[in-house]
Design a protein around this nucleic acid. Structure first.
Length: 554
RNA sequence: UGCCCGAUGGUGUAAUGGUAGCACAACAGGUUCUGGCCCUGUUUGUCUAGGUUCGAAUCCUAGUCGGGCAACCA
């Protein structure tokens, strides 16, 4: 593992340490990451993954990768595959500990029979409407089902009939007999099994009854010898039930500990909402680079290491918070700054003709590949009479503190000496600046200039498609619809701008997934859509732009 | 309104009865062939009211505010 050394301690680690000290679980630490294979993983899951695997690693234990596949109508093999790939990409290794809840279906069934025999579970034929009615509401106790005192033998017979497929979907359920007056709704005789004549992606048609989460999850943990079952806050009210089942059965009893899920500003994390974005075509798929899915972040060019560092830094608490997406961006830049090779790319080209360089004459410049990493070496870049520069690096009437090119002014050309602007060629009709002419001075001319700009040699410029991504939502907390608006109302119309840029020849031959820093512009990652000769780059993040702030202030 | 959980700068967190610290963000400056990186500095915080204590962010009580819970979902 490439985890940074001192992962900060949190209240869960304290609990683990105290269990270790007390010998509660025989000195072991076993955690698990238990996704349901019904969607793609997102950065919120990454927090859980880092916690589950990180805690196990920290205390010399192990973490199980387990699919909680107890609902065949929602789950698919496609999601199993993507989840596995995403966890691996994030940098975690479950070794041989890959499990499926569906592998325990027989064992869970047998435990259910045992509970029936103990008189602690019964088959109930209440309709969903009646069920709801009998359960009551939080402020008032429920009523007992008329089936509650069905004899054990009859319960066994009916449950067996359920298993054999003799009853239609929804006609019967198996319920735990706990307490219809409990202030905790989940303790009011919760459902353990429902009938679903559905094809399961792993067990096929072997089963037509499927266990409910509360019944299944604790058993999965117990069967695998999990010690610390870490989950999000909304399961807190389920804990008494988790404990109740394992106590009745007298089996291995892990400790469930809850923590707050991750919320990111300008982002939505709900699986349902993400699905809606995909289905309504508001994004281009689960791996759209604007999506907070791991697949999307990967395609965007966000390094796994940045996600791990981010997850480590947001910490683990029981307080529901909204983390600033700027913190993620900070780690993205931090990692990429260290490893991304530098290249020159001009996003909005403006031609600059250096009149004192003869046509056809070329100079070779030596460009540094990564100032943060001397081992990355240098590369040659050809330089000649005509170059492309960034349109934004020219101002006909320069603002105060504008250190770039303007009529009569000079700038340094990165690695290639100096340019002084002598003439501005404009479209007479629109006034638009079309081309610049100027004078060139070699690097040793020693002109006193404050600015350096990047450029691409016109004779060797390579055209590229560049996708400029920005945050998907313009509202800090788009998931909050309490103001009467819907999250889709706040989609940032500028979240994607596709442009044609010119890049230096060294960027002509790149592979999908390669990351670069386009000097002075941002970090970019090669998209799988790239074809030989026409690279496609996704903007991962901009560079910090002090000038934009100064200019923005007016 | 029944039960459960929580509350520390703008944001995320640390301090486990003894100097409220770190990171991000913001701001100011230094450095610089990237207005990047790096470096220095500044601003801003313990929800309220009582209580325990020599001493409370921390313990107790009450309140306020926020979140969660009424799928045959997980």
């Amino acid at each position: 593992m490439t985890e940074s050394p001192a992962a900060p301690r949190n209240f869960i680690h304290e609990a683990v340490e105290s269990d270790l000290q007390a010998g509660t679980f025989g000195g072991q630490v076993v955690t698990r990451f238990p996704p349901e294979p019904n969607g793609y993983l997102h950065i919120g899951h990454a927090k859980a993954i880092c916690l589950d695997f990180g805690t196990a690693t920290k205390y010399g234990g192990r973490c199980h990768m387990r699919f909680d596949d107890t609902n065949p109508t929602a789950e698919e093999q496609e999601f199993v595959d993507s989840i596995l790939a995403d966890v691996r990409w994030l940098g975690f290794d479950w070794g041989e500990h890959l499990y499926y809840a569906s592998d325990y279906f027989q064992q869970m069934h047998d435990y259910a029979v045992e509970l029936i025999k103990q008189g602690k579970a019964y088959v109930c034929d209440l309709t969903p409407e009646q069920f709801k009615d009998y359960r009551g509401v939080p402020t008032r106790p429920g009523r007992e089902s008329p089936n509650r005192n069905r004899p054990v033998e009859e319960n066994l017979r009916l449950f067996e009939e359920m298993r054999q497929g003799q009853h239609p979907d929804g006609s019967l359920v198996l319920r735990a007999k706990i307490d219809m007056a409990s202030p905790n709704l989940h303790m009011r005789d919760p459902t353990m099994y429902r009938i679903k004549h559905a094809h399961h992606h792993r067990t096929g048609d072997t089963w037509c009854i499927y266990p409910m989460y509360d019944w299944a999850h604790g058993l999965e943990d117990s069967i695998e010898g999990v010690t610390h079952s870490l989950c999000t806050l909304e399961f807190e009210v389920h804990r008494p039930l988790y404990d109740w089942f394992l106590e009745q059965l007298g089996v291995w009893h892990p400790k469930q500990i809850e923590f707050a899920r991750l919320n990111l500003s300008y982002t939505i994390m709900s699986k349902r909402k993400l699905q809606q974005l995909v289905e309504e075509g508001l994004v281009q798929g689960w791996d759209d680079p604007r999506m907070p899915t791991l697949a999307g972040l990967r395609r965007r060019g966000v390094p796994a290491e940045a996600i791990r560092k981010f997850c480590e830094e947001v910490g683990i608490t029981k307080y529901e918070s909204l983390t600033d997406v700027a913190l993620l961006e900070h780690h993205v830049r931090g990692v990429l700054n260290r490893i991304a090779p530098r290249r020159m790319a001009v996003l909005r080209p403006l031609k600059l003709v250096l009149e004192n360089i003869p046509e056809g004459e070329e100079h070779l410049c030596e460009a540094v590949n990564n100032p943060e990493d001397p081992a990355a070496g240098t590369r040659p870049v050809r330089f000649g009479r005509e170059i492309y520069m960034e349109h934004d690096d020219f101002m006909e009437e320069p603002a105060k503190k504008f250190f770039r090119l303007a009529p009569g002014k000079s700038v340094r050309l990165r690695y290639a000496g100096f340019a002084t602007c002598t003439e501005v060629i404009k479209d007479p009709a629109t006034g638009e600046v079309l081309e610049l002419h100027g004078h060139w001075d070699p690097p040793d001319a020693g002109l006193k200039v404050k600015g350096t700009i990047h450029w691409v040699p016109a004779a060797h410029a390579v055209e590229a498609e560049v996708r400029l991504y920005d945050r998907l939502f313009a509202k800090e907390n788009p998931a909050d619809e309490s103001d009467g608006t819907r999250f889709t109302d706040h989609i940032n119309p500028e979240s994607l701008k596709v442009i044609r840029a010119v890049v230096e020849p060294a960027l002509a031959d790149v592979a999908p997934g390669d990351s670069f820093q386009f000097e002075r512009t941002g970090y970019f990652c090669v998209d799988p859509d790239a074809r030989p000769g026409t690279p496609v780059f996704n903007r991962t993040a901009t560079l910090k732009d002090t000038w934009a702030k100064v200019a923005g202030r007016g």
